[in-house]
Design a protein around this nucleic acid. Sequence first.
DNA 1: TTGGATTATGAAAAAAAATTCATTTTGCGT
DNA 2: ACGCAAAATGAATTTTTTTTCATAATCCAA
Lengths: 226, 226
Amino acid sequence: MRILVIEDEEGLSDFITLELKHEGYEARPVYDGREGLEAALGEEWDIILLDLMLPKLNGIEICRRVKAVKDTPIIMITARDSVMDRVTGLDSGADDYIPKPFAIEELLARIRVIVRRNEKLSSQPSMSLAFKDLELHIDSRMLKKGDRWIELTKKEYELLFILMKNINRVLTREMLVEQVWDYDVGIETNVVDVYIRHLRNKLETADKEEYIQTIRGIGYIMRDEK
Amino acid sequence: MRILVIEDEEGLSDFITLELKHEGYEARPVYDGREGLEAALGEEWDIILLDLMLPKLNGIEICRRVKAVKDTPIIMITARDSVMDRVTGLDSGADDYIPKPFAIEELLARIRVIVRRNEKLSSQPSMSLAFKDLELHIDSRMLKKGDRWIELTKKEYELLFILMKNINRVLTREMLVEQVWDYDVGIETNVVDVYIRHLRNKLETADKEEYIQTIRGIGYIMRDEK
DNA sequence: TTGGATTATGAAAAAAAATTCATTTTGCGT
DNA sequence: ACGCAAAATGAATTTTTTTTCATAATCCAA
């Protein structure tokens, strides 16, 4: 875990660096803005600790320039607990800020938090179901037809989801009502029919392609062949 | 690919079995219901072809009993194209049906479809974000607090999602409005505040635990420590 | 401690989604 | 071809969600 410490007060900087090393991190102190930016951009860091007030090049500017290029987490050290400082700091892209003076334990805690977060943020799978020229995206709950994006309401999405998860499997109205509407008793409404219609309206734009087939006396199906 | 063919008309049964083998499947014919059920339950099959009308034990019953135990795909072969047959067939859990007489090519197509589907249906990851005693489930869009499930509206979900994806990171109203509402210009509404309130109302039930903190002059944050 | 800015809050208004209902159209068995 | 059941359809109604607005409460700096 490599941490870059950009802080001009040598006493503080060395203290932080020492503490970080003591915690088992690899830490490097840099004492002015120009040098800091160079180090931040030139090498790979896991976290950057950045003082707002720096000689030669101020923290805001460094933060902005770094964030423009990469997403290294930055913790801003603000001199006073002033709103303006924090605002500009965060607007320039900082991930967190810590007001001076601070307890070293608090800084360490914030670092641990960022480390933990970045560990999690690794594997984020994204699913989608496909049928003909349709793609139902699970994460965004949107439907892609060819190159068009179609918005779906909750019920529309849930209904289409069940249908597309069961391509080539006939679904009775009972099944659909049970899974989408949670009515566990026999249906006495035609919500399914109505929502099938809504879906058809959204899907069957202009082209004569038929996506949802009616199986008379039974229910609906999305079929690949014949 | 192992396929079980439960069909009492020996001519048809042998014909199907032969064709399946010709296609490269491993197929076994079974000529009556009792034997069929035994084979279906006792061994692992990728697909079961099941005639509705069988001596000793009818197809519906077999289908029901098999589906009660496992989820082997079943294609029902219905004698006549009668609605009642299909209804009971599907209600008993069959995945598809094919009316007799049928072209062998159609049967093969339906089998291919099921095979393909099952190939896809393998890896379905399910994500969730966690914070304190909260779990935001990405697939169901529901929030679990301890052991209680809380429903969220679209905006509530999207807002909470951003917040929980950025634990320990302060988010300005601008950031939130941009990501949840798509207003790319400066805000002139207080929707964010209002929805933060909605979330707090849903989250902060009875216990004094504070989930969403206000950072005055800046925005909101969900913080782990201090 | 006070004033002004910021946030919280309740509730009204507007918009969207879900449901129901009445009617028309379609498909299928006779 | 006819009649009936099933499905499609359009639209009204109800419910929920989203947004706006006016006001109250809170926080912080001077």
